[in-house]
Structure formats: structure tokens, C-alpha cells
Simulated assay, not measured.
Amino acid sequence: MNFDKITEESSHYDHLEQMSVEEILLNINKEDQTVPQAVNKALPQIRNLTKITIDQLSKGGRLFYIGAGTSGRLGIVDASECPPTFGVPHELVTGIMAGGDMAIRKAVEFAEDSLTQGWDDLQTHGISENDVVIGIAASGTTPYVISALEKCNEEGIATGCICCNAGSPLAKTAKFPVEVVVGPEFVTGSSRMKAGTAQKLVLNMISTATMIRLGRVKGNKMVDMQLSNNKLVDRGVRMIMDETGTDRQTAEALLNQHKNVRQAIKAYHEGNE
């Protein structure tokens, strides 16, 4: 696929092995500071993709991330954090990556080069026109992702993407592309660095904004979070205290009874009307 990728261009730095640890860290940090600026430039695109995501999920659809390598892993991370953070079903947001679950920890050779497996993987989840599929690929040229989105387009399924090269084949395929051009990496071609950071920031924005608009946040609090450890239980108790003005003992009793911060707050107000 002939396409000039800025993500593959030579680093602005050379002789990295001759740098001191301090110089390496300083220069990486210097490059990292450019990422939020690149994301800012893509805000109109991010807005469009987020709005269609909200629309589809509001109608009962689901969100799928599909990618390979670092990009695929980032999608899986974001998807896996939605249920505990916002209390949504696990199937509402799903991360899929080339090579399957085993590729999360160990790269599967040539998995990203398949022109059919991406769509096959989506079909195992019963993908439909109610859903939205976001392809994640720093290069914007990953066959596994592009071919999956092409098939989604044919089937009338909303498609978006997050990539780090302007005018890439993936961006041209997606109906709602997001292009965050972060420039060459500190280590030439290592797109797990700035490109990966950019993708993570965009994923945070899309999923968080979507969950807020779906009513999964009250005020600024995660009132539907899963109470899966003592830290989160304590946070839940403090949320109830803040929202109701009640004492800790009462808040703990409410949370123990209802097992959910939102329901505990609701029950308190109903009982004191």
C-alpha cells in the first residue's frame, strides 16, 4: 500500500544510544507535550464521531473498537473499563484485536494483514446497523481494520476511526474519521509512543462523553460504578454523604442495602420526602 506515513518518518533526534538517561527522558517528555495540541486540532472530527456514537447507543446499539497491536490493545483497555466505571453491560462496548485475545499479551505474526478476519471477528458479536465500529490504527493502513470497516460500510453500519496520518486509506474508508497527526516518534516508527498516547486521549474523550450523555454520571460522579474493591466502596460511601448530607453510618447502610450509589441516593431522598 503506497502511502507516505509521517508515523514512519525519521525521528527528529539521533544517536539516542549516546544520550544520558536525563536527556532521553527530557526529549521524550518534550515530544509528548505536542500530543494534546494535535488532539485539539482534531476536536471537530472527534465531536462528529462522538455524536454518532451517542446516537447509536441511545437507540440500543453498541460500540466496537477494532485494531491491531498497540492500537487494538488500547481499544480493549478502554472497552474493559466502561463496565466498572459506568456500570454498563460488558457487551455495550467491546474491543476486538487482530490475533484474538492471545494477541493482547503476545504479538501474533501477520494477523493484521488479513483482509477477511476483521469482519469475521465482528460477526461473532452479531454486528448490526444499530452499532458503531471505530477502527484504531496509528498508520491508517492496517488491512485487518480497513477491510472490516469497508464491510461495515456495505452493511450500513456507522464507522469511525482513530489514526495518526492525514489522508490515510483508513480515514478515507471511515464515515467519521479522526486524524491526530503527532509527527515522527522519538524512536523512529515506534507508534506506541506519541501515536498511542493520542489514541488513548481520544478514546477517553469518546467513551467518557458518551457515558455522560447516556446518563451514567451524576454531577461529576460515577454513581453507577461497580463496587469491586474497598477503595470503590469507600468512594461510594463518600458520594452518598456528599449528595445527601447524611452521616457515614447511614451512607454505609444505604450502600450495603442497595449495592449501587445511584439507587442508594434515590432511596434516601424518597425516604425523606
Rank of each mutant, 00 (worst) to 15 (best):
F186H: 05
L254Y: 04
V77W: 11
P169K: 10
I96R: 05
A209Q: 00
F186I: 11
D101E: 14
Q117N: 12
I265Y: 09
G100Y: 03
Q226Y: 08
A148C: 12
E185G: 09
Q123R: 15
K59F: 12
S71I: 03
D101N: 14
D78L: 11
T173I: 04
L43N: 09
K106L: 01
Q123G: 11
T210E: 01
I46E: 02
S11R: 10
K200Q: 07
K218Q: 12
G196V: 09
I104P: 14
V132S: 01
N48M: 07
Q56I: 05
T246Q: 03
T50C: 12
A111I: 07
E8L: 11
K200D: 04
Q249K: 15
G189D: 01
Y13V: 13
K218Y: 14
V93A: 10
T34N: 12
L63P: 13
K231G: 14
R238E: 04
L57N: 05
V202R: 01
E22N: 15
G100C: 05
K200W: 09
E81K: 13
M211I: 01
T124C: 13
G167A: 11
A68C: 06
L115Y: 13
T208W: 00
L203V: 08
E8I: 07
Q45Y: 04
S191T: 04
V180M: 00
V182Q: 01
I240R: 01
R213Y: 07
N27C: 14
Q117W: 11
D55H: 08
E23L: 00
T116R: 08
V39E: 02
L92W: 06
C82L: 07
